[in-house]
Simulated scan of single mutants.
Amino acid sequence: MVICKICGNKMSEYGHAEILNKYDITYYMCEQCGFIQTEDPYWLGEAYSSAIADSDIGLLSRNIMLSKNISGIINGVFNDAKTFLDYGGGYGIFTRIMRDNGFDFEWYDKYCKNIFAVGHERKRMHYDVVTAFEFMEHLPNPREVLGELFACADNIICSTELIPLNKPDLNNWWYFCLDHGQHVSFYTEKAMIYLAQMYGKYYARCGSTHVFSRSHISGYKLSLCCRFPRLVNKLRRRASLLPVDYEALTGKKI
């Protein structure tokens, strides 16, 4: 019997699909929370031969968009927050942009080289806010990794697509990403709420952006911050850390 890695209940076979154009994989769906997971992902070593998939051509535009939206959420919902970590931060693009926007972000990624945020690798044990984008779907053991995040942050902002209500065919929903095989866990809102309750957090979301927080957040307020980030950021503008970072690297002032 296959057990759900979110709520521990029984899972049923959801279907089969070919990953990396060579491996026939079984997918399972939880009968309780609707979470979908693959069979034991033995192919991940091959899938991560490149940490960033070649097909992820939206990497730059996504980071630019995220920097605006997440700045709006932090300024509008977590305005008192001072320390930030981008977990699974890839090449460091998001961390660099956020520092340019005045947020003291640090970077962490177990699999990818930091290119754009050198000198700002993780130094603290605890943060006010941790971000993790396009990350949760990569986790073979989500409860274990999320436990690490909840242990080092009061609040978590992450992004992942929720499973559509029509229970999509494995070959028709793009987010299954069969070509690169890195996506192995897929969530419902019910599964997200279960995770929040497990770790004593509140849960709110706006589209594919999910917030786990120490204190209750109004869904309406979160929605406003997501819809009008430019206005929120204009009202609560922060001084860029670019001059400070440049001086730390070079010993010279801009």
Rank of each mutant, 00 (worst) to 15 (best):
Y108R: 03
Y194A: 06
F84Q: 02
V184I: 13
M136Y: 10
E106F: 10
E39A: 12
G102Q: 05
V145Y: 06
T250F: 06
Q37I: 06
A239F: 08
R143L: 14
L195R: 00
A132D: 09
H180N: 15
V184E: 12
K113F: 14
L146Y: 12
E144I: 12
I36S: 09
I52M: 07
S240C: 11
R124I: 04
N172P: 01
W107C: 04
Q32F: 07
T131S: 11
I3W: 00
Y175C: 03
C7V: 01
E46N: 08
L146V: 14
I57N: 10
Y87M: 08
F176E: 02
P140Y: 00
W174K: 07
K252Q: 15
Y42R: 09
F176W: 04
F105N: 04
A248L: 15
L241G: 04
F94D: 02
P142W: 05
K190H: 07
D128C: 08
E39P: 09
R143N: 09
D56Y: 15
G15A: 02
L249R: 11
G58N: 15
N166V: 06
D54S: 14
L178Q: 10
D169E: 14
N233M: 10
Y199I: 11
D86S: 01
C30K: 00
N114L: 07
I217P: 11
E18H: 05
D56W: 12
V2N: 08
G92S: 06
G181P: 06
H126N: 10
D54G: 05
D24E: 14
G92A: 02
S215H: 13
I70E: 08
S55V: 12
N79F: 13
